[in-house]
Each structure stands twice: as C-alpha cells, then as structure tokens.
C-alpha cells in the first residue's frame, strides 16, 4: 500500500498529464465520431456573450453589403408576388385547405468558421425562440447547414463545410439524387457523391436540395457543377459543386422548421420496426 502511494506521489505530474490528456483525447474522439458534440460547444452563455459583444461592433462594417443582399432578395420576392397575383386572377384558389408546411425564423451569425476541417457556426437564437436540433439553416442564396446544439439563447449550426455533414441533394433539371458532403479542403466547393451514372451531368448545371429529408424543402439552391468524374467503381459520379453561398461571409440566416417533421419521423420509425 505504502509503495502504491509512493508511486503515485513520485509520478504525480505524469499521472495528472495522462489524466488530462485522456480527457481531451476522449472529447476529441467523441466529437469526431458522433453527430453531436455534446459536452464542449459554443452554444452557451459565456461564448455567446463574447461573440455577441464582438458582433455588435463588427456588424457595422458590412452594413452596406447586408443592405444589398436584402434589396436583391426583396426584388426577387416582389417579382414572385407580382407573378402570383397575375396567375390567381384567372382561377380561384381555395386557400382554406392549404396548410403551412414551414415556419421561418431569422437569426444573426455570431461566429462563423470555414478554415478548420469540421466547421460550426454560432447563431443568436436558441431554445427560448423555439429552435431545436435538426432545423435547416439557409440564406437567400442557398443552404448553410443544420442546427446541431442548442442552449437557451444560442445555437450551433453544423455547417455544410463539415466532414460530418450529409445532405440529400439532386440535379435541378432531373430527379437524380446524391448525397452532399465535404472533403475538408476548399470552402468554395463541396462534393456531391453517389449520383447515378445515368444522370445527364453537365458542367454549369444547378444542384438543389432533394426534399427527401424532412429538414430542407425541395429545391433550395446549393451550387453549380464545377467538374465531375466517375467513381472508382464506375457506377456513380462524384461531382464537385461550386457553392452559391460565399461561406466566408454570412451575416443573417433563415432557419426553417418543418411542421410535418414529427409526423414524417414517426411514420419512418414505424417502418423501421
């Protein structure tokens, strides 16, 4: 017994080092292998407070750009409204049966990273605004990611620039689907894999969300095809997609809540069983 105590006291530095290093290593492995990084994340009061203070100064520097983005989006929406009004003149649409499918929130980006191999954003809305995990996050240009962790006032977003991210996507012109992931290299490009070799893939074609998941509605823009090659197996295409969004410059985002998500999930779970 005495010897054990002596051993512990003699090697206390090494043992403490080993303990701390294993904790850190466990957290690292946990963050690499599971979808959610549960313990250490930036959705909390301390980090949110610091990033909020910085953001309140920082946002003045790109007010002009933000205004331009908003004006452009307003123009698009106005165009759509005008076209809708013209259409509805000719035929009467009974809207009382139409049900809302998506609820939209806005949020400001407090922290955005794109230079790591697993990137997350922090936004200034959280559980008290009704956000929970697995809501989709987009801008007026295209998709950003999926809500990952939430705290009371803040949430982290698993960016599409994250090697853990998998998003269902398809070619806009046809219905050939694939899965969007990132190889960890350039923040301008992501990769669409598992696209059937029968798909008519052309450089410059648009890629949009596929609507097979309950997170994003169908047809939200992702990017255009920059280059493509057949997989080693020869059965599928691997497509390099140039993103519509400049992921290095994101100010305001929209969060989409699919109001049917619960229903779809229970239905799918009942199939699994």
């Amino acid at each position: 017994m005495q010897q054990i105590f002596n051993f512990v006291i003699r090697n206390k530095t090494f043992l403490l080092f080993l303990l701390l290093f294993s904790i850190a290593l466990a957290l690292t492995i946990q963050s690499h292998s599971y979808h959610r990084s549960k313990f250490i994340n930036s959705a909390n009061g301390i980090t949110g407070g610091v990033y909020g203070t910085v953001n309140s100064v920082d946002q003045y520097f790109d007010l002009k750009d933000e205004n331009q983005i908003l004006a452009e989006e307003n123009r698009l929406l106005r165009e759509k409204i005008l076209n809708l009004e013209n259409k509805s003149d000719s035929s009467f649409i009974d809207t009382s049966y139409a049900k809302e499918k998506y609820k939209v929130f806005t949020a400001e980006v407090y922290k955005n990273s794109y230079s790591l191999s697993d990137n997350y954003l922090t936004i200034n809305k959280g559980e008290k605004d009704g956000l929970v995990e697995d809501f989709g996050v987009i801008t007026s240009n295209g998709i950003i990611g999926i809500i990952d962790n939430t705290s009371n006032g803040y949430a982290t977003v698993l960016s599409i620039l994250n090697r853990k991210s998998r998003i269902n996507a398809k070619l806009k012109s046809t219905n050939h689907i694939g899965s969007l992931k990132w190889n960890g290299k350039s923040p301008e490009f992501t990769q669409l894999i598992d696209v059937s070799k029968f798909a008519p893939v052309k450089v410059g074609d648009t890629i949009v969300t596929g609507g097979q998941s309950s997170i994003f509605p169908q047809g939200i823009g992702i990017g255009t095809i920059d280059s493509f090659e057949t997989d080693i197996s020869g059965d599928t295409y691997n497509i390099n997609v140039k993103l519509f969004n400049d992921m290095t410059n994101i100010g305001t985002v929209y969060i989409l809540q699919n109001l049917d998500a619960e229903e779809i999930k229970t239905l799918q779970n009942s199939i699994d069983e």
Binding site: T13, F14, F17, L20, F21, I23, A24, L25, A26, L27, T28, I29, Q30, S31, H32, S37, I40, N41, S42, N44, I46, T47, V50, Y51, K111, S113, L116, D118, N119, Y120, T122, T156
Partner: peptide, 20 residues
C-alpha cells in the same frame, strides 16, 4: 479555446502536451 471554436478537445490535448 475549444469551447469557442467548437473543436472537441484538440486544443486542450495539445496545450496539455506542451505544458508537460
């Protein structure tokens, strides 16, 4: 630093190694 940059425990591990 990990908490602020959402990186799991990589900075903690590296900092502990450097300190040791």
């Amino acid at each position: 630093v990990d908490m602020f940059s959402d990186s799991g425990g990589v900075h903690a591990a590296a900092a502990v190694c450097l300190a040791y």
